[in-house]
């Protein structure tokens, strides 16, 4: 079966891995920002699926992938407002609210899809790509890495920007303080609740964009549950990143490559159980957790509601 290992096939595998990884980076980055502010955002999957649906509808009606990504982000942000209201201002349990948001958004989008598109299942044209001059001509790697939709490169810029933001801006430092010492932040003149609000809304927007990316560029359509647990993986990636945002990129890339590897191993006819092959991405995560989990950094006030009168 080595005859199938053509450059076209390998490039397709690599490209598929990258397309799978990008939404995880958007979601993981959003979760990292939320967690740094002290809010464990288990509603990430719900924000993603809301973004997937809204982005799909927007692109279907406008023809613009960028508009769809933006609307997807707005939808994720809207869902995150529930998280803000319930957890940041009403001090509800972040875990319960997060799970409820995921269930709620999944149910609502399934209902909307059923009402609007279950007879037609519309699909989108293939998303256009931005080919990086010279680099995109490299065999296999060129098509796989340097001939992707521009939102792929945008997310890398966002990660770099977020690193600078946390290191060099006052609001970035405030977000970290809101997650570690919210009372100290308030004593210094900051507003922990407002800071957490900004962080959670940012997470919602990024998760929504990630979800829209899955529907618009990964699948080319929306079906109920299309995000398929990407939000949960994003949470794991943020946990593993230990505050180092580039680790999110590395982890997402690892998962993307693993997914493509599972397809490749099946097609070259290795006589090992497919179940074992398909455990690869998750096995890799567990291995990474074993190796690095002990040093994981979590904000001291993560998952704790902020009560200015409780000292």
């Amino acid at each position: 079966m080595t005859d199938i290992l053509s450059t076209v096939f390998l490039a397709s595998l690599l490209s598929g891995g990258v397309i799978s990884a990008v939404p995880l980076i958007y979601a993981g980055l959003g979760e990292a920002i939320s967690e740094r502010s002290g809010v464990l955002n288990l509603g990430l999957e719900g924000m993603m699926v809301a973004g997937a649906y809204a982005g799909f509808v927007a692109t279907l009606n406008s023809g613009s992938i960028w508009f769809g990504l933006f609307v997807g982000g707005i939808a994720g942000l809207v869902v995150s407002l529930f998280m803000v209201g319930l957890c940041v201002y009403l001090n509800a349990d972040q875990i319960v609210v997060g799970i409820a948001l995921t269930l709620g958004a999944t149910g609502v989008t399934a209902l909307l899809h059923s009402a609007q598109y279950s007879k037609s299942y519309p699909r989108l044209p293939k998303a256009g790509v931005l080919s990086i001059p010279l680099l995109s001509k490299i065999p296999v790697v060129g098509v796989g890495l340097f001939s992707q939709h521009a939102s792929t490169y945008l997310v890398l810029v966002l990660v770099a920007g977020a690193m600078w933001f946390f290191r060099s801006t006052r609001i970035g430092l405030n977000i970290k303080a809101a997650g570690d010492q919210p009372h100290a932040l308030e004593a210094a003149g900051g507003n922990p609740r407002r800071t957490r609000t900004v962080a959670v809304m940012t997470a919602g927007f990024l998760a929504g964009v990630g979800g829209a990316h899955i529907a618009l560029i990964g699948a080319g359509l929306f079906v109920p549950g299309v995000t398929n647990g990407a939000g949960d993986i994003g949470i794991v990636l943020a946990m593993l990143a230990r505050g180092k945002l580039w680790w999110i990129v590395a982890g997402a890339g690892l998962i993307g490559v693993s997914l493509s590897l599972t397809t490749a191993l099946q097609l070259i006819g290795l006589n090992i159980p497919i179940d074992a092959v398909q455990m690869l991405p998750f096995l890799l995560i567990i291995v990474v957790l074993f190796i690095f989990g002990r040093d994981s950094y979590l904000p001291a006030a993560l998952c704790l509601p902020y009560d200015r009168e409780a000292r």
Binding site: S12, G16, G218, L221, V223, P224, G225
Partner: peptide
Amino acid sequence: SDAAGANRVTSALIAA
């Protein structure tokens, strides 16, 4: 319900 995964794997088979 993994439509994105289905797209990815089917595209790979077509490329093969």
